[in-house]
Computed example of a mutant assay.
Amino acid sequence: MYLHKEINCADMKVTFEIKVYENDWKYILYGNYLEKLINNCNHDFFLKQLIINNVRNVDQVLKYAKKKLIDRVIDKIIVVNEHEKTVLNYFNLQKESFNGGFNYSIAELTGIYFCETEYLFHFSSDSYVENFGFDWIKMAVENLEKNNKFIVANPTWNNNFEEAKQESISEIDDFYVGYGFSDQCYLIKNNVFKAQIYDEKNIASERYPKYGGELFEKRVDAFMRNTNSLRITSKELSYAHVNFPKKSFLNRFKFYILHVAQKRLK
């Protein structure tokens, strides 16, 4: 589902993406949370796509998603279960191979499949950033373009800069360089991730939670380690990964989003 948009494609090559599911779509689509998140990135995205996955009432979610489309907050809506077979066939994957991790993986794979640009900047619905203050994405892309081994970039997670440094194997300018992958927030080279790379295994990747089975981020981590592919992690910018409360949505929304999530980044 598209809204026509006149863009100079030569100047744009990054897609913004956020996924929602049953327990959090209201947080993302009510009010102006999504607008703030996009604005905080300080980047003029080529496209902005919303991934809808695993919701009880698709029509109800679409009602609010289409309002964001009309208001030009987003440009594309993708309902995951409408494309499940196409996406699995494209990546040559079987649903059973995820061993319980299918619902943790299919939204990301669907977003990659539908991404039209060279780069994809993805947020899980429970990740948030304060205003970057500058175009961090442009800086990250410039560094990703310099080295074929660099395939993903991300802000540091939850202000854990010392942990990011310890996990790195080297440094470049404003980034730590190392292995590892998280589906919470990532900027990826889409041509790499759009290939059939998701059948790799690596002993180091067994650190991911058992309940997730053979989930997307575990498969990516294994591929990266097996091919010596690397990620770059910002030395100065962080995102917050938080769990939305499942009850009392209307009472908690304003406090939780505007105070708790942002406070963790100060």
Rank of each mutant, 00 (worst) to 15 (best):
Y2L: 13
N8W: 03
M12P: 00
T15H: 03
T15I: 10
K19P: 00
V20P: 02
E22W: 00
K26I: 10
L29T: 02
G31T: 01
L34T: 08
L37R: 12
I38R: 10
N39D: 11
N40G: 11
N42Q: 10
F45D: 14
L50D: 09
I52G: 07
N53E: 10
R56Y: 13
V58C: 07
V58L: 05
D59E: 15
K63E: 15
K67E: 13
K67P: 01
I70D: 12
D71F: 08
I74P: 05
I77Q: 01
I77V: 11
V79C: 14
H83F: 10
H83K: 10
L88D: 06
N89R: 05
Y90M: 03
N92R: 10
S97D: 12
N99V: 11
F102L: 09
Y104N: 14
Y104Q: 07
S105C: 08
A107F: 10
Y113T: 10
T117R: 15
T117H: 15
E118D: 14
L120A: 04
F121I: 10
S124H: 12
S127C: 14
N131R: 10
F132G: 11
F134S: 14
D135Y: 09
D135G: 12
D135P: 06
K138L: 12
M139F: 09
A140R: 05
V141P: 02
N143V: 01
L144N: 07
L144S: 08
N148V: 08
N148Y: 03
K149P: 01
F150N: 05
I151C: 01
P155W: 02
N158L: 01
N159C: 15
N160K: 15
F161S: 05
E163D: 11
E163W: 06
A164S: 15
E167H: 13
E167P: 01
S170M: 07
E171G: 04
I172D: 10
F175D: 02
F175W: 13
G180H: 07
Q184W: 00
C185N: 14
Q196A: 06
D199P: 00
D199E: 06
N202R: 08
N202F: 11
A204H: 13
E206D: 15
K210W: 08
E214C: 00
E217C: 05
E217H: 04
R219E: 04
D221M: 00
A222Y: 00
M224K: 12
S234D: 07
E236D: 13
Y239S: 08
A240Y: 13
H241S: 14
K246I: 15
K247M: 06
K247G: 01
S248C: 00
R252A: 06
Y256H: 08
I257G: 01
L258D: 15
H259F: 12
Q262G: 14
